[in-house]
Design a protein around this nucleic acid. Structure first.
Lengths: 182, 182
DNA sequence: CGTATCGTGTAGCACCTGCTACGTAGAACC
DNA sequence: GGTTCTACGTAGCAGGTGCTACACGATACG
């Protein structure tokens, strides 16, 4: 289906929807409450985005963009040793204003693991952008870059789970331990 | 609310519900389809478990039990070096018959990050049991055991995300890299 | 100027949700 | 033997779901 509606209105809806999903979660998103928060009706959201699933997909993709953009802004371009990168990314992750994004990130990954549409597709896209980002920054021989990036991503993701499931103290100490032993 | 109903019937319902949740996911669980699969009515499930949320909580706790039990069965008791433990746990995780359990595990963690009831509480319990399990098996000085266990758990969880979001090949190579560099 | 398309409002449809009210056969208890 | 309690069936309630049908003014276009 072609994109319908005035482009700037669509952008406004999208931005508002991102905000709303960051606050209230993605898997339980429902059109009427979202529409109310945006000052519209479900009818209009469907007109602009086609279906709940399409709306959710574009919202989540935009969140993924924002995540990588925030990382790029915080971590200088150029290559660093993996542990430096880990430390830098973790310090970004522990900033309070990115917490909702990271909670949403884990929600996406969890729903993707459960094979819920459209999360699986979004998760693959986000993860690949994440991997590309890390591959461009990690200072290891070319042949190892892909695996090093994957290792970094896995480490961060695991720490995030620990962080939200058990508590930030445990995750922080786990970071130190992971850094020490390399 | 006291537990109602015949105990063996309750166990049968619970076992069937675990099966159903492993197949169809937890966050979208709904009483009527589950009841149909079990050959009952939603009415009966509520009679036996009190509410959807209580039912879901006990189902997920039981899945958590099963996960730790499966690990204990596969990995011999006694202490091993962290990398040996990582390798062992990862080889268990890659068995095809535990895949649904791990997908569900990530779904739980994702919903917990999104602060959805009852997932947050279940996630904390499961993670702590996981941590205790690892703490009892890891062969490092006592003072470091807690952090080593947390590091192991984080690594595994991250690898699982990578595994389901990107593909098993990437995760497998990331494991090798994480093992090499220690 | 007439006509077609676009953006939007109002209503509503069919279905699903957790949960409850009520009735009842059988068993347990006094 | 009457009463109370337990396990269960049937029906239904109030509210939510994504989505659609239809009307209508405005705007663009021939």
């Amino acid at each position: 289906m072609r994109e319908r509606g005035r482009p700037e209105q669509r952008q406004a809806f999208l931005a508002g929807a991102v905000e709303h999903v960051l606050r209230h979660g993605a898997s339980g998103l429902s059109l009427r409450p979202l529409a109310a928060a945006l000052g519209t009706s479900d009818r209009m959201l469907l007109y602009y985005f086609g279906s709940r699933e399409l709306l959710l997909g574009t919202v989540l993709d935009r969140v993924g963009d924002g995540l990588v953009a925030a990382l790029s802004e915080a971590v200088p371009a150029g290559r660093s040793h993996p542990e430096v990168l880990l430390r830098a990314v973790w310090s970004v992750a522990r900033e309070t204003d990115v917490e909702p994004v990271l909670r949403l990130y884990l929600e996406i990954m969890g729903q993707a693991a459960a094979q819920v549409a459209p999360f699986a597709a979004v998760a693959a896209r986000v993860a690949h952008r994440w991997l590309d980002w890390a591959q461009d920054r990690v200072d290891v021989p070319v042949a190892e870059r892909q695996d090093a990036a994957a290792g970094l991503l896995a480490t961060i993701d695991g720490l995030l789970i620990l962080n939200f499931a058990v508590g930030s103290g445990v995750a922080d100490r786990a970071v130190l331990r992971l850094l020490d032993q390399r």
